[in-house]
């Protein structure tokens, strides 16, 4: 007997490759959205700092805007820099 698979329609769920599950600011899951967004994924992306912590982009931007002087990572208090891959 010979079996040929012609096509396969599967189901997968996507997730962020991150070292944590929840955003440290809004406490929502990374795969979910920040409180302001409705759609997850592309519309509410994650960003990483050089300190390796990551947050919903909207969450950390809002946080940084509230810090007028030295912009720090809310987790480790190192000064925040975006880690651009």
């Amino acid at each position: 007997m010979k079996l040929t698979i012609k096509s396969w329609t599967g189901v997968a769920s996507w997730r962020w490759i991150a070292n944590d599950e929840n955003c440290g600011i809004c406490r929502m899951s990374f795969e979910s959205t920040c409180p302001e967004c409705a759609l997850p994924g592309d519309d509410c992306p994650l960003v990483w700092g050089v300190c390796s912590h990551c947050f919903h982009m909207h969450c950390i931007v809002k946080w940084l805007n509230l810090q007028p002087l030295n912009k720090q990572c809310p987790m480790c208090r190192q000064s925040w820099k975006f880690n651009i891959h």
Binding site: K6, S7, T9, G10, V11, S13
Partner: peptide, 9 residues
């Protein structure tokens, strides 16, 4: 073979 996928949140 061809793979298509429904990628869910």
């Amino acid at each position: 073979f061809d793979i298509s996928s429904l990628i869910v949140s």
